[in-house]
Amino acid sequence: MSAIFTLSILQSALELGCIYSLVALALFISFSILNIADLSTDGCFTLGCAVGAMVTLSGHPFLALFAAMGAGICSGFITAFLQTRMGVPSILAGIIVNTGLYTVNIAVMGFSSNVNLFACDTIFSLAKDKTASPWYDSWYKFLIVLAIVLVIGIILSWFLNTRLGLSIRATGDNEHMVRASSINPLFMITVGLCAANALTALSGAILGQYQKSCDINLGTGMVTIALASLIIGETIIGKGSMLKKVIGVVLGSCLYRFIVALALRLNVPAEALKLVSAMIVAIAISFPYLKEKSHFYKMRSHNPGIYRKEGNANVSH
């Protein structure tokens, strides 16, 4: 039997893990920090991919990344506007924006449901063949996404320790405190959601250039996948500084990709992949709870009930 993990599987898991880790980082901001379930993630991911693809097609693969982030910020702003200024409940605001984005995405792609980028330069094709080293040839894609994730990770962990970042974290942590300490929670939610959606859209744009195509259904289920990565990351890293948590989220995302790759390797049919994803998410989310439970059962079995023990003692004497 051949090894379960070949180098190429490891490689693509790392590449995809890094790309998708940006969405997980976005959910880290909205879900973990702001305590808001942002369900516009699916649509925003496709939006980033669509905008990125169109700008790439016109010959600006680098500009595409920034354009996608700009589009993500707009989408995040609308979600935030609905919930902070229009009184729409946060989950509903995400669903509404997500629904609207479907049409926007189709329109961005020129009223077609997919776009391919095989004929034009991408950030990956531009970096190809820069050196003769075979090592670079096989790893350049990973190096590019790793560099992007590093930059984003460093900026994010720096940002979350600035006063604006602290205020955003406090907004999700204790609403009473925030209101009593001159922080405008509405502004903080807006900034947080804009930042989160910028990352989601950036991830979409990179994925579009990576697989050289964009499809209207690309983002479906993205929120589940990102949530799985986020929770795997939080489970393996636990408590710690913001930088540590950010690293955990990226690791979680890569680990998730490994699990998916493993599932594919074990001949799970491609159609069943969404089911596998859902199961991984369910397991990842319930894992911390089950761990605590098992700790309790272990404690109980190691320290048998005092009543029973005393009862036995009475009988024997």
Binding site: R163, L166, S167, R169, A170, D173, N174, H176, M177, V178, A180, S181, S182, I183
Partner: peptide, 27 residues
Amino acid sequence: GHLFQDPLKGTAPHMTIEENMALAYLR
């Protein structure tokens, strides 16, 4: 300045003492 009866209301539990004080100082 506003203090509540519930001691949990005045501070952000998942942030450090230092970070909480920095927020107060932001004013």
